[in-house]
Design a protein around this nucleic acid. Sequence first.
DNA 1: CTCAGATGATACTAAATAGATTCATATAAA
DNA 2: TTTATATGAATCTATTTAGTATCATCTGAG
Lengths: 170, 170
Amino acid sequence: MMAALARALVDRPRASLQELAAAVGISKATLYRLCRTRGHLVERLVHHATTRITEAIEAARLDAAPPLAALERLITNNLEHRELTTFLIRYWQHTPTAAGVEAGWDAALDAFFLRGQRAGVFRIDLAAPALTEILVALLLGLIDAERRGRVARASLAEVIERAFLRGAGV
Amino acid sequence: MMAALARALVDRPRASLQELAAAVGISKATLYRLCRTRGHLVERLVHHATTRITEAIEAARLDAAPPLAALERLITNNLEHRELTTFLIRYWQHTPTAAGVEAGWDAALDAFFLRGQRAGVFRIDLAAPALTEILVALLLGLIDAERRGRVARASLAEVIERAFLRGAGV
DNA sequence: CTCAGATGATACTAAATAGATTCATATAAA
DNA sequence: TTTATATGAATCTATTTAGTATCATCTGAG
């Protein structure tokens, strides 16, 4: 339900509450009982999404596990929350609370890539923040590509990992 | 002006026409004279954006130039229209006219990458459409990263090209 | 079956917004 | 300076929407 609402809010940001309810198959009244205002709904979804994704990042053990194993878990864990991830990208700019969470994720990923660079696993001619952004870009972009039917769902994680680690060149 | 409106529409999709006008520094009346309805405004921006980006793609000569040179031009040409690109991503699902244009771009890029694969320039263990999506993801994601101050503007094209061709692994 | 809790349909009011107009002012070219 | 054009500020009406409440119906547990 939360995931469906997140997706509806992303697909049609200008939809009225009535349209949102219809999009997820409930009545306007039920949506109202869930969250009295649109603001509450967004707040609640942001909180839900940040919680889940923080769990996904922590479960990857970026600070201690071998870099390549941690990277793989990071990718697969995040793919399990596609709708929430795409929701956050579009909505956390409106909720100042989430800004600190984003900064925390950036810091965790930056530190992870720095560690991997020192361990000789990631290249050093791209700054660690750039590596973070490259990975996030691939995650978001290919999730969307799957939604549009351009990449098969089964191969998603594989494509992302390969593109991130080795690129498209021979 | 068009670029500013595109950006405002992306940053705050639920803004009223009055807020949009204020965001780009004009009055509601002037915005009304430019486009009488919100629908017209979106239509016009979609048309403007598709035209410009089609030009950018054609200028890259994907069908004939050496693959690596064409790729570089494709990246730099597109970076010149960041706001329009991000606008299109969010709005062309609402304008059926643009769907055909998108299909055309996909086809052009897919064919380009296929040609590059046959020429031994791009790896063949990722399908050509996947390569298209990877490049587009990097373009969009790193444009956004620059907006958030995570990647320096001057190094944008370089980072994208390197990430795309060689990835983050050593 | 019976009943409590959940849901849907509907209606209502206040607020926000879209679309359109008018008039005054500013700007720049002739 | 004069004149045409563009812009802004303010106003107005009709429509849409948010937020709220009411009542009927459905569903499942006991």
